Lab assay of single mutants.
Amino acid sequence: KRPMNAFMVWSQIERRKIMEQSPDMHNAEISKRLGKRWKLLKDSDKIPFIREAERLRLKHMADYPDYK
């Protein structure tokens, strides 16, 4: 399994928030909203998620050196 990218790290947190506020919302609608919100997010606000994704990528490389 591939490591999460910055969007996936961010969306995992945000998806939980949306599901708590709107438990009846369909997953497809949540995904659309997350995509739009990520695009509107300032680059500076994305930095912590980019760093976490990089950390996960490096850990994945160390844990699975033969992964292609």
Rank of each mutant, 00 (worst) to 15 (best):
D24C: 06
K46S: 00
H26G: 11
I13N: 09
M4N: 07
A6M: 00
I50F: 13
A62R: 13
R16G: 07
Q21Y: 03
I47S: 06
R2M: 11
K39L: 07
S11L: 04
A62G: 13
D24I: 03
G35A: 15
L40C: 12
A53K: 00
M25Q: 03
L56G: 06
W10S: 00
Q12H: 11
E52T: 04
H60K: 14
N5Q: 03
P65M: 09
D63V: 08
P65N: 13
M61D: 11
L40I: 04
M4T: 11
K17Y: 05
P23Q: 04
N5I: 02
E54T: 07
I30H: 00
L58Y: 07
K42C: 07
D43T: 10
Q21V: 09
W10G: 00
I30G: 01
K59R: 10
S22A: 12
R37A: 15
D63H: 09
K32S: 12
N27Q: 13
K68G: 12
D45P: 00
R37M: 12
I18T: 02
H26C: 15
L34S: 03
I50N: 07
P65I: 06
M4A: 08
S22C: 13
H26K: 15
S11K: 01
E20K: 04
R55V: 07
P48F: 06
I13P: 04
I50C: 03
R55H: 07
E29R: 01
D24M: 08
S31K: 12
W38R: 00
E54N: 10
E29C: 05
K32M: 14
Q12A: 10
N27C: 09
I30K: 00
M19L: 15
Q12Y: 06
L34R: 00
P23H: 03
I47D: 10
S44K: 12
H26P: 15
R2V: 11
D45L: 05
A62K: 13
I50E: 13
R37C: 05
Y67D: 14
L58V: 12
F49I: 01
M61E: 10
L56A: 05
P3R: 10
H60Q: 12
M8E: 15
D43N: 06
R37G: 14
R15E: 05
A53G: 02
Q12R: 07
S31Y: 07
S22Q: 11
L34P: 00
M8K: 08
A62I: 09
M8L: 11
R33A: 15
W10R: 02
K36I: 15
E29K: 02
S44F: 04
D24A: 08
R57K: 05
R15V: 04
E54M: 04
S44W: 05
M19W: 06
M19R: 08
M25F: 03
M19V: 11
P65C: 08
R16E: 10
I47T: 09
I13R: 05
K1Y: 11
H26S: 15
S31H: 09
A53Q: 00
M8T: 12
P3T: 12
P3G: 09
K39D: 13
K36D: 05
R55A: 11
K36C: 04
A62W: 07
S22G: 05
D66I: 10
H60P: 12
Y67C: 12
D45W: 06
D66R: 13
M61N: 11
R2A: 11
I18L: 10
E29A: 09
A6E: 02
A28D: 10
I30N: 00
P48T: 06
R57V: 05
R16K: 14
N27H: 14
Q21W: 01
M25T: 09
E29F: 01
L34C: 01
M25Y: 02
A53F: 01
Q12S: 10
A6Y: 01
R16S: 09
A6W: 00
R15I: 07
N27V: 12
M4P: 13
L56Q: 11
I47A: 14
M4L: 11
M4S: 04
P48I: 11
H60G: 14
R37W: 02
E52C: 05
L41F: 02
W10E: 00
N27I: 09
D66W: 06
S31I: 12
K1R: 06
I30Y: 01
K36N: 14
K42H: 04
R57N: 04
L40R: 11
Q21I: 10
Q12M: 13
S22D: 13
P3A: 11
D63E: 14
Y64L: 13
G35T: 15
L58A: 13
S22W: 14
R15A: 05
H26W: 07
I30P: 00
L34T: 00
D24Q: 11
K59L: 14
M61F: 07
S31Q: 12
E20R: 05
K46R: 08
E54P: 01
L56T: 07
R37P: 01
A53I: 02
K59Q: 14
I47F: 08
R2C: 12
D45Y: 05
R55D: 10
K36R: 12
K32A: 11
W10A: 00
R2L: 07
M61Y: 06
E20G: 06
I13W: 03
K42A: 12
R55P: 04
I47Q: 13
K46V: 01
P65A: 07
K32V: 11
D24S: 10
L41A: 01
R33V: 15
M61G: 14
I18E: 03
R37H: 06
P3D: 14
Q12T: 09
F49L: 03
I30W: 01
R15L: 03
R16W: 05
K42E: 09
D45G: 04
Y67M: 12
M8A: 14
H26Y: 02
P48H: 06
K1Q: 01
W10L: 00
G35L: 15
I50R: 09
D43H: 11
P3V: 10
I30A: 03
S31F: 08
L40H: 10
S11D: 02
D45T: 03
Q21H: 07
I18W: 01
Q12D: 15
M19Y: 04
Q12G: 07
L40V: 06
S44P: 04
D45C: 02
L41T: 01
A6F: 02
Q12N: 13
M25P: 04
S22K: 09
P65G: 12
K32L: 11
K68C: 07
A28G: 09
L58C: 07
K68A: 04
W10M: 00
A53T: 01
K32C: 09
G35F: 14
S22Y: 14
D43K: 07
A28E: 11
A28I: 04
Q12P: 01
S22F: 15
K39E: 14
N5T: 15
W38S: 00
L34W: 02
E54V: 02
M19Q: 11
K32R: 12
P48R: 05
D45V: 05
I13V: 09
K42N: 08
R15M: 09
M8I: 09
A62S: 13
K59Y: 07
A62H: 09
K59C: 09
L40M: 13
K36S: 11
K42R: 08
P65E: 13
R33Q: 15
H60T: 12
E52G: 05
L56V: 06
M61C: 12
N27D: 15
E54Y: 02
N27A: 13
D24P: 03
D43R: 05
K32I: 08
A6G: 11
A6S: 04
I50W: 02
E54S: 05
L34M: 01
L56D: 05
E29D: 12
K32Q: 14
P48A: 03
D45F: 05
K17E: 00
K32P: 04
Y64R: 14
M4K: 02
E20Y: 01
I30M: 07
A28P: 07
P65H: 11
W38T: 02
S11F: 08
K1V: 04
L41P: 02
Y67E: 15
D45N: 02
D66C: 05
M25S: 05
R15K: 13
R33T: 14
D24V: 04
K59H: 11
P23V: 02
M8S: 12
L58G: 14
K59P: 09
R2E: 05
M61S: 13
K39W: 02
D63P: 10
A62Y: 11
Y64M: 12
D63R: 10
N27K: 13
M25K: 08
S11I: 02
L34G: 00
P65Y: 10
D43G: 07
R15G: 05
S44R: 07
P65S: 15
K59N: 10
I13A: 12
V9W: 02
Y64W: 07
K17A: 01
H26T: 15
L58D: 12
D66Y: 03
K59I: 12
M8Q: 15
I30E: 01
M19E: 13
D66H: 10
P48L: 04
E20H: 10
P65D: 15
W38V: 01
M61L: 12
D24K: 10
K17Q: 11
R33N: 15
D66K: 11
E29T: 06
W38A: 00
I50L: 09
A53V: 01
R37L: 05
R57T: 09
K68E: 10
K46A: 00
G35P: 04
Q12W: 02
L58Q: 14
Q21D: 06
